[in-house]
Design a protein around this nucleic acid. Sequence first.
DNA 1: GCGTGCGCGGGGACAAGATCGCATAGAACC
DNA 2: GGTTCTATGCGATCTTGTCCCCGCGCACGC
Lengths: 221, 221
Amino acid sequence: MTTTPTTPHDPAAPRSRRALRPDDGRLVRGRKARSRIREAALALFRERGFDGATLRAIGARAGMGASSIYRHVESKEELLIDELAARQEEAWMRFRKGDDRRLPVRERLGRFLELEHALLAQDADFTTIALRASTQPEARVAKRVLALQDRTIGLVAEILQGGKLRGELARGLDLLAASRAIVHVLAGARIPWANGLVSAEGCRASIAAALDVLFSGLAAR
Amino acid sequence: MTTTPTTPHDPAAPRSRRALRPDDGRLVRGRKARSRIREAALALFRERGFDGATLRAIGARAGMGASSIYRHVESKEELLIDELAARQEEAWMRFRKGDDRRLPVRERLGRFLELEHALLAQDADFTTIALRASTQPEARVAKRVLALQDRTIGLVAEILQGGKLRGELARGLDLLAASRAIVHVLAGARIPWANGLVSAEGCRASIAAALDVLFSGLAAR
DNA sequence: GCGTGCGCGGGGACAAGATCGCATAGAACC
DNA sequence: GGTTCTATGCGATCTTGTCCCCGCGCACGC
C-alpha cells in the first residue's frame, strides 16, 4: 500500500547493511519499549483525550523521555493510528465471525456498521482524530488513515457484492462508488456527534436515514 | 446558531456595562486592524499555505505583533474560517444568480456542486483546513465550520425540494437525509484529493459516480 | 577479551500557537 | 482639567510537538 517504503529511519524495517537477528537484545528491548509506549499512550488518550495527552506525559508513563518516543514513532498521531488500526482489525474479525452470507445485504451491512460504530463510539476522540489525521500535511499518517478507510470500503463492497449476486441490488450498480458513498456518509454523520452537537441517538438515526435514502435512491421510480 | 455567546472577550459583542458608540476611536481602530489582519492572513495563506503562514508573519504584515492578533481573533483557524465563509457566500450568490428553477434537479444540483467545487479547488488547503477545523477541540471554530456545512445542506435540500415538487424525485424521500448524504459524500471524496492521492479529475469522477448511485439507489427495482 | 557498529535513551534546543500582565491612548464623565 | 474606563498593542513567557547530538550498552567478529 505504501508507495514510499524508503523511509530512512523506519523502525519496522531498519536499513542496516547487516540484518540483525530478530532476537537481538537491542531489538527485543525496542519492542518492549514500543509496547510500553503504546500502553501509556492509549491510557492517557482515554484519560485526557488526544490533545490532553502530552508526549512528555506519555514518555514519563512509559519510563522514558519525550524525545525518546521518536525512536519508535514518527509522530504523535501515529500512536493513535496504531490504536485505530488495531481496533478496526478487531471489529472486522468480530464481524467475520458472526457473519452469515445468506442474510439479506441490508441486514449484513447493518451488522457491519453496528460493529464499526461500536468500535469508534468507545471514544469520541477516535472519530475526531482519525479525521484530523487524514487532513494533516504529514503524508505518512494521512495515508495510513486513508488506507484504513479504503479497507473499510473494500469490506463494504464485498458485502454489497454478495447482495448483487443474489439480485438484491440494482444490476448496473457501481459497487465501488456505492461503498465509498456509504463509508463517506457514515464519516460525515459522525462529525457533528464527535463535536457534541448531536446525541449518539441522533447520529444513529441520521445514519439510518441516510441508508434508507441510499438504498431506495433519490430519483422517482 | 452559537449556543454559548457568553464568551468573555468576544470582540464582536463586548459585554461592557456601558455600550460604546460605534464610532468610538478605539472601535474604529479595531475594525481597521481586523481587516488588515484578514488581508495579511489571506495573502500569506495563499503564498505559503495555512501551516506555512506563521502568526508572527501575519502580525508583521498587518503591522502588529503576533500576540495582538489575539485581540481580534480567537485562534489561527478562525482566520481561515472567515475566509471560507466569505467564499461560500460568494459561491452561493453566484449560483443563485445563474440558477433556473425550471431545470431538472439533477442539472441544478450539478451546477451547484460545480461552483462549490471551483470555490474549494482554488486552494487545496481549504478542503483540508475546513475539515481539520471541524475536528478541533476548540468548539467555537468547529461549530462555525459545521454551521457552514449545515447551510450547504440546506441549500441542497432547497434544490431537491424543487425537484420533489415536480415529481422528479421519489415521493417518500427524506429531503434532509438526502441532502446530508450528498454533502457528506462530497466531503469524503475530496479528502483523498486534498492529500494528493487522487487527481482532480479522479475526484470529480468519483463524485459523479457517487451521484449516479445516489440517484438511482442501491436496491434492485 | 576487545574494538566496533548499531539500537536505544536523554537532555537540550527550537518553532509556533497561545497566554499574561502591563502600557497606551482615546473617550466619557465630573 | 482631572479621573476613570476600556479597547488595543506589546514583550515576555509558557506549552508542546519535534529535532539534534551525544553517551551508553549490548551483540558480533576477530
